[in-house]
């Protein structure tokens, strides 16, 4: 059985690890998501115009 201080130390460490990992991942993959989203919206807008 771990004490309260140790438990919350692990939770805090997990939060910092989650934030660091997700920030790097989101920086790369989220940027690509934006690029693809804008490309698709541009194509859809063009398609609507053609119709």
């Amino acid at each position: 059985m771990i004490d309260g201080s140790t438990f919350w130390w692990y939770v805090t460490a997990a939060c910092l690890a989650w934030f660091s990992t997700v920030t790097i991942y989101v920086a790369i993959r989220g940027g690509l998501d934006i690029k693809h989203m804008l490309r698709r919206l541009k194509a859809l807008k063009q398609q609507n115009r053609d119709e």
Binding site: V22, Y25, V26, R29, G30, L32, D33, I34, H36, M37, L38, R40, L41, K42, L44, K45, N48
Partner: peptide, 21 residues
């Protein structure tokens, strides 16, 4: 990129996972 109300309110439903996170 905004052409319709759907683009304005729900981004044309084109959002992917990491941008969503």
């Amino acid at each position: 990129y905004i052409g319709k109300v759907e683009d304005f309110l729900v981004a044309g439903r084109e959002m992917d996972v990491y941008l969503g996170v």
